[in-house]
Amino acid sequence: MKSTTWPTFGDTTTATEVADAFSDQIRGKNVLLVGVSPNSLGEHIALAISRHSPSLVILASRTASKINQVIDSIHASKPSCLVKSLTLDLSSQSSIRSAAKELNALTQKLDIIINNAALNVPDYETTQEGIEMHFGTNHIGLFLLTNLVLPSVLSAVSSSAVPGSTRIVNMTSAGHRLSPIRFSDYNFRKVASELPMEERPPEGLPKALTDPERPYSPFVAYGQSKTGNILFSVSLTEALGGRGVRSFSVHPGSIWTGLARNLDEQGQALIKATGKVWKTGDQGAATAVVAAFDPKLNDVLGGYLADCQLAPAAEFATDPKIAERLWDLSEELVGEKFDLGGK
């Protein structure tokens, strides 16, 4: 497996250190960061990047007041950084479409997209379109937003002197291993035994994670959405890799963020038990900054990163044929087809 520029970077490396190492690659870039709030991974990514003179940083999230708090933090350390805010609700496709129009009016060149936004809810909910909330927000919402602003990404490629430096980074999780895509039941109406074998959760999971007698598990639903993030990068690489766009999926590691705090007591106990190394926010943000700016990845056609290095993901999350099926399903769920020239 190919290495990054700094093979010594690992689970304790911070986003601050990574940004310092790749300062030249950050300078002059237009960056869209989706998913920011105070004390979140998004804020740590934004703070690390903003210190190195990007041309424009666009912060997109659901709550304007929280975006503004992050902007204040950025300007406290780098007053000259140009930062714009964009409010959108990833659980509403109409909100996403409105935000994409606003974004396309802000800039016609996006060098970097970092899709950091995600939610984790303990009870069954659906998006405004009736899609299970994790899948509909964490995957479908980001799928739609990214495709709607792809013309700005392709514009960046055409003006870049360095093929491969235009990137789309999708934050995922090691939790993707909890579930493949349930094509026959993405809305979790069936118990696992009613699913085709290839769509069932892996055998041997604790009953607290997936009860065989209950159709819905928030952990498995979250896992399905995170598998979707990896497969989305696979599809983007397949379609756009030859045109100079790179897409990577990133597992940030175990960080005590708002995602974990939203879980009930049992859920928090399970999360605590799975974390071998607990990272600070700055450490958790590091791998996303590697994926977005490491110049050695210009020559790598996509992949999954963890602890600042390329790493293996589950086979069901990296199969190009499964990625194509998910792309087709995603287009169906947003009611629009996207011509990427390579699909």
Rank of each mutant, 00 (worst) to 15 (best):
R177I: 12
Q266A: 14
S173G: 10
E199W: 03
T274V: 14
L240C: 01
A273M: 14
R214Y: 12
F232H: 13
L263W: 11
R261I: 00
V234Y: 04
N187H: 15
S158D: 08
F219K: 05
L205S: 10
Q224Y: 10
S193G: 00
G275V: 03
G253Y: 10
G284H: 08
E198N: 10
T237Q: 13
G253R: 08
E198H: 07
S160N: 04
I271F: 14
Q224V: 05
N262W: 00
S193R: 13
F219N: 08
R189L: 15
E203Y: 00
I168G: 06
L178C: 08
G284R: 10
G244H: 02
N187D: 15
G258M: 00
P206E: 12
N262I: 00
G244Q: 03
S179K: 13
S254G: 11
V250N: 05
V169H: 07
A156F: 02
A273H: 08
G204E: 04
N262F: 00
T227D: 05
S233C: 02
S158G: 02
L259G: 09
A239E: 06
D264C: 07
L231M: 01
G267H: 12
P252N: 09
F183Y: 13
V220G: 11
A239C: 11
A285G: 06
G204N: 06
L236N: 03
K207A: 13
S225R: 13
F188H: 15
T237H: 06
G242C: 07
G284Q: 04
R182N: 08
R177E: 14
L236Q: 07
R182T: 08
P180W: 05
Q266V: 11
N187Q: 15
P206H: 10
K276A: 10
V220S: 11
A161P: 00
S155K: 10
V157R: 02
G275K: 14
A208G: 11
S152L: 01
L231N: 03
D264K: 09
E265K: 14
F232P: 01
P202Q: 08
G253A: 05
N229F: 03
K276L: 14
G223I: 07
A269Q: 13
V245K: 01
S179M: 08
S184C: 04
L178F: 15
T274K: 13
D282G: 04
L209K: 08
G228S: 07
V220R: 12
A260H: 07
D282P: 05
F188S: 15
L231W: 05
I230V: 14
V234F: 04
L178R: 13
S225E: 11
R214V: 15
N262P: 00
A221S: 15
P196E: 00
G175A: 15
A273T: 12
P163E: 07
G267C: 09
V162Y: 12
T237S: 10
V245A: 00
Y186R: 12
P215W: 11
S173P: 08
G242L: 05
F219T: 09
L270S: 10
A192S: 14
Y216I: 11
S254I: 03
N170Y: 02
S158V: 00
E203N: 04
S179T: 07
S249I: 09
V169F: 04
D264E: 08
N170L: 01
S179L: 06
R182P: 05
M171G: 01
A208E: 15
M197A: 12
A273I: 05
G241C: 03
F248G: 02
H176A: 07
E213M: 08
K207Q: 14
T274D: 13
E194R: 11
S225L: 11
A239R: 10
G281D: 05
Y186I: 13
